[in-house]
């Protein structure tokens, strides 16, 4: 949370950010599809300093069975931050209030996309593990999970890309890194469906005017075109290049 703004820290100097990016530039983004043997679909995303792995299982038998719907597959999502993911001390393992909330909002993204009516009485599991965190893990997770679901061959109405637009040093900036996030005055993660341009996730904290909110949405939409291209490329490459996938290194 970034409530009290630390305005002494300069994050933008002469239109350049600490890492040399312009306001709308993304950090380096690399996606590898199909990195796991056992999962039905998977993806590894390196985005700035984020390292996130996503595995998808299903459609498979719904457990517990009394939750199964005769009309559709249940989409389930578990977002977890590893205790070694940050530069600070080893954190507590297991679910936190934050991860509970993120699991919910990420699931609600994919409930809009997966054509669940095709698979009654089943569940589709999306497992997301953040191995290294550098700001923007929820948006990177959504971006990864979209590729993993496509890689699993699960039919979807659309693809989704996500990015956060923040306000730091008085300026709106796309794809905040950890340092910018910590000293920022606002953070708005947004996920857009790639074709319909529907908003599938939006959260916001900090203080923004209505006019700033409109600009945030425009900047996010522009950035997500670029992210979608990287996602599409990762899927194409997966089918072009057969053999063992290398990731993490």
């Amino acid at each position: 949370m970034m409530a009290s703004s630390t305005s002494e820290v300069r994050l933008v100097i002469d239109g350049k950010r600490m890492d040399g990016r312009g306001p709308e530039d993304l950090r380096q983004l690399r996606i590898e599809a199909g990195v796991l043997h056992e999962a039905d679909g998977s993806a590894f995303v390196e985005w700035g300093g984020n390292k996130i792995i996503c595995g998808v299982y299903g459609p498979r038998e719904c457990i517990p069975r009394f939750l199964a719907s005769p009309y559709r597959a249940l989409v389930k999502c578990r977002y977890m931050m590893s205790p070694f993911a940050s530069l600070e001390e080893h954190s507590r393992s297991g679910p936190s209030r934050r991860s509970t909330e993120l699991s919910k909002v990420i699931r609600e993204v994919f409930e809009n996309l997966v054509i669940a009516e095709k698979f009654p009485n089943t569940q589709i599991d999306i497992y997301i593990d953040v191995l290294q965190a550098d700001g923007g893990t929820r948006t990177a997770s959504i971006t990864a999970a979209a590729v993993a679901l496509a890689n699993a061959g699960i039919p979807m109405k659309d693809m989704v890309s996500a990015v956060a637009v923040g306000k730091a040093d008085g300026q709106l900036l796309v794809d905040l890194g950890k340092a910018e996030d910590n000293f920022g005055q606002s953070d708005t993660p947004v996920a857009f469906a790639s074709r319909s341009k529907d908003i599938l996730l939006i959260q916001m904290d900090g203080m923004l005017t209505r006019d700033e909110m409109a600009r945030v949405l425009d900047m996010a939409e522009r950035a997500e075109g670029k992210i979608h291209a990287v996602q599409a490329d990762s899927l194409k490459r997966h089918y072009e290049e057969a053999g063992e996938k290398k990731f993490l290194m």
């Binding site: 909002v105 609600e108 409930e111 319909s196 908003i199 923004l208 005017t209 909110m213 939409e221």
Partner: peptide, 16 residues
């Protein structure tokens, strides 16, 4: 009075 201070979408989707 002047600012949006929190947003949260639940289920579903909406346009800009």
């Amino acid at each position: 009075e002047s600012h949006v201070c929190a947003i949260q979408k639940g289920k579903g989707s909406l346009t800009k």
